[in-house]
Simulated scan of single mutants.
Amino acid sequence: MDKFSDMEMFASIVKHQGLAAAGRELGLSPATMTARLQALEERYGIKLLNRSTRHISLTDSGDLYHKACLEILDSVRGTENLLQKGVKEVKGSLKISAPKDVGKQYILPILSEFVERYPEVTPYLYLNDHLSNIAESGIDVVIRYGELADSNLILRRLASSRRVLCASPEYLVKKGTPLTPQDLAGHDCLAMIRSHEELKTWHFQLNEQRKSVTVVPKRFSDDGEVIRRWALEGAGIALKSLIDVQVDINERRLVTVLNGYMKNFDTSTSMSSTNLNVVYMSRQYQPKRIRLFLDFLFEKFETELNIPKARG
């Protein structure tokens, strides 16, 4: 069988949580389904599913393959739909959610240019720092840091990033520059609130050594843009995504400290937890305006914006 058919089969198995139900959808016998799945795993030399008599679950490799299958199948079906129905006028609503810093600095000008190109598109831009249930929110495109645990969503990396500690030059002249994470105890820190949780325990890694420091913040906010503004005003040290403050650093409005350390709000040291991603629903017939906007968004980030690369 061809690879596309294998992808359809595997996506159906995961969707129905079983080979028999997937086989009924595809018109294949249980024996054929089992043989094709075994052949697929043998082709790549990996195990894709953990199977018992009543339950199946994805392995790490299976989860990666499943996400790729959904994206490829979604793209092919969308192309087929366009070919069958013809290219229609690009119009309708386009609902986007993004963190405030990224939304105002990057997404807003990109969206404005897109709407200028396609004036029949009506944009809705929601700026917030909270994760949404995409399936229930009605949002077409969600831009977020980190990953979302939902295999029914398509996730694509928009830009690599990392966390940095930063403060204004004026603040550092006044308060001094911390040389170790422990030095933060003597500094004014600016902390985020996420889902009513105060993110005041900051985690650091230098080589293989890990250290967690609970700071005593002078100010809190659930708005990342407010944290950045306070840092620019000299109110203290902030733990921010590099993308949010890259322009401020380039123009010396902010200075990074403790640069040798990997930093995060949680104990994860995975760089993927700080990357900027685009998340959207997997749809059999994705509206052309959404597909065009996604292509436009990735093109802008790849070719025109000075987005930093992640480093340790």
Score class of each variant (00 low, 15 high):
residue 63 D to N: 13
residue 37 L to W: 02
residue 128 N to R: 10
residue 155 L to E: 05
residue 266 D to N: 14
residue 101 D to S: 15
residue 42 E to N: 13
residue 121 V to E: 01
residue 152 N to S: 11
residue 306 N to R: 09
residue 57 S to A: 15
residue 14 V to I: 13
residue 103 G to M: 09
residue 77 R to E: 12
residue 120 E to I: 14
residue 299 E to D: 15
residue 266 D to Q: 12
residue 75 S to T: 14
residue 218 K to D: 04
residue 256 T to S: 03
residue 33 M to T: 05
residue 110 I to L: 04
residue 76 V to C: 03
residue 11 A to Y: 06
residue 300 K to S: 12
residue 133 N to Q: 08
residue 197 E to P: 07
residue 40 L to P: 05
residue 299 E to Y: 14
residue 99 P to V: 14
residue 153 L to W: 01
residue 77 R to H: 07
residue 17 Q to G: 08
residue 159 A to G: 08
residue 129 D to V: 00
residue 182 Q to I: 12
residue 45 G to E: 03
residue 25 E to F: 11
residue 78 G to H: 09
residue 27 G to C: 00
residue 38 Q to V: 05
residue 125 L to M: 04
residue 306 N to M: 04
residue 19 L to P: 03
residue 96 I to W: 01
residue 15 K to C: 05
residue 43 R to A: 04
residue 240 K to F: 05
residue 216 V to D: 14
residue 182 Q to W: 09
residue 143 I to S: 02
residue 175 K to S: 06
residue 113 E to D: 09
residue 75 S to H: 05
residue 132 S to I: 15
residue 181 P to C: 12
residue 49 L to K: 08
residue 24 R to K: 08
residue 162 R to N: 03
residue 245 V to H: 00
residue 49 L to R: 14
residue 85 K to T: 14
residue 147 E to K: 12
residue 202 W to D: 02
residue 86 G to C: 05
residue 168 S to M: 04
residue 209 Q to Y: 06
residue 20 A to S: 14
residue 150 D to P: 01
residue 189 C to D: 02
residue 276 L to C: 04
residue 50 N to A: 13
residue 121 V to D: 05
residue 198 E to V: 05
residue 22 A to Q: 06
residue 176 G to M: 07
residue 9 M to H: 00
